[in-house]
């Protein structure tokens, strides 16, 4: 067991123990933070590892959430199957977009996905006989009772499962190929890497995880609205991943928890906390590009691929 695993284990135990000593409010905050952590860590895989700087990630969360809620609402499908259907739909849409953006790079990719995300948001708003538009689609909860603890633990287990799944994927050759594609796509192709396959694969996996996040978010908050797809929400996810460390999946998840937790702690400062968020985003990127987590725990939370590369360099 490496030190990196030890740190992660400590964090996990702390997360598991938190509801025992923190009040219900922090349980609630934690349950929402898992949603962002799922998004930030899967986006880190997409953007940090694979270099696919997509602005459509939150749109996939909305797609999963809306699809599963609408299926249950209109066709009476049990929630469990609705969730699976929502995730599958997000993966199919992810495959489609991954295929569409094959030829796009850098800012063009960012703008293309931004436009798709905007079109999707406008459809959620305009097709109100189906989605209830900005009124928001009310989603029945999964667990009854007053406590948010079931959601807290369910969300945490989803997050852990997602992190394990992504780490497992990266431990195979896929991780190496993804980084190779990001750093120099032409060279990777010349070396015999099927770049098309892996680029689409990473979109499928991360979109499915975003969809999963959305299907969890809806029943917990009780309402889905098109505003979950607005650009500032995407910006928040980016900020979380960047601050935590865009090249470390657990780092991005921790970044999400830190950013969301801090924004709750500093509520009394009103608008200033978002000013600080913007400033933090610039400062972290300016002075600590691998995220504050990577700097604090430099060798601990680096993915093996990076580690190996650093070792060689």
């Amino acid at each position: 067991m490496t030190r990196s695993h030890a740190v992660q284990a400590v964090l996990l135990i702390a997360a598991l123990a938190l509801p025992a000593w923190a009040g219900p409010y922090w349980v609630h905050v934690g349950a929402i933070a898992w949603y962002y952590a799922l998004l930030a860590s899967s986006w880190a895989l997409l953007a940090g590892y694979a270099g696919q700087f997509s602005f459509a990630h939150v749109a996939f969360a909305a797609l999963g959430g809306y699809a599963s809620a609408l299926l249950s609402l209109h066709f009476g499908i049990p929630p469990g199957i609705g969730v699976v259907a929502g995730i599958v739909l997000a993966m199919v849409a992810g495959a489609l977009i991954g295929w569409l953006v094959l030829r796009l790079t850098g800012p063009y990719l960012a703008l293309f996905t931004l436009a798709l995300s905007e079109i999707f948001r406008l459809m959620l708003v305009a097709e109100q006989q189906l989605t209830r538009g900005s009124l928001g689609l009310q989603v029945p909860g999964w667990f009854g009772g007053e406590s948010d603890r079931p959601y807290y633990y369910f969300g945490l287990s989803l997050l852990v499962a997602a992190l394990l799944l992504m780490a497992g994927l990266l431990r195979t050759r896929v991780g190496l190929f993804l980084r190779a594609i990001r750093d120099d796509e032409g060279a990777a192709r010349a070396a015999g890497v099927n770049t098309t396959l892996y680029k689409i694969l990473v979109f499928v996996v991360t979109s499915g995880l975003a969809g999963l996040a959305g299907t969890y978010y809806g029943p917990f908050v009780g309402i889905l609205t098109p505003s979950m797809v607005i650009l500032p929400e995407m910006g928040l996810v980016i900020a979380m991943a960047v601050i935590g460390g865009i090249e470390s999946l657990p780092g991005a998840a921790v970044g999400a928890v830190i950013v969301y937790g801090l924004s709750e702690l500093t509520r009394e400062y009103g608008q200033w906390r978002f000013v600080l968020l913007g400033l933090a985003l610039i400062l972290v990127q300016r002075f600590a590009q691998n995220g504050i987590f990577a700097v604090l725990e430099r060798p601990l939370l680096r993915p093996p691929a990076v580690e190996a590369e650093r070792g060689r360099g």
């Binding site: 953007a47 270099g51 700087f53 850098g106 800012p107 960012a110 500032p232 910006g235 980016i238 900020a239 960047v242 865009i246 608008q271 200033w272 978002f274 000013v275 968020l277 913007g278 400033l279 933090a280 985003l281 610039i282 990127q285 300016r286 590009q289």
Partner: peptide, 22 residues
């Protein structure tokens, strides 16, 4: 560099928009 630029300029948006409201 592409990603660096996207992130810092996006951070500028978050910063200035909210500063504008204040």
């Amino acid at each position: 560099k592409d990603e660096y630029a996207i992130i810092v300029t996006f951070g500028l948006t978050v910063l200035l928009l909210n500063l504008g409201i204040v």
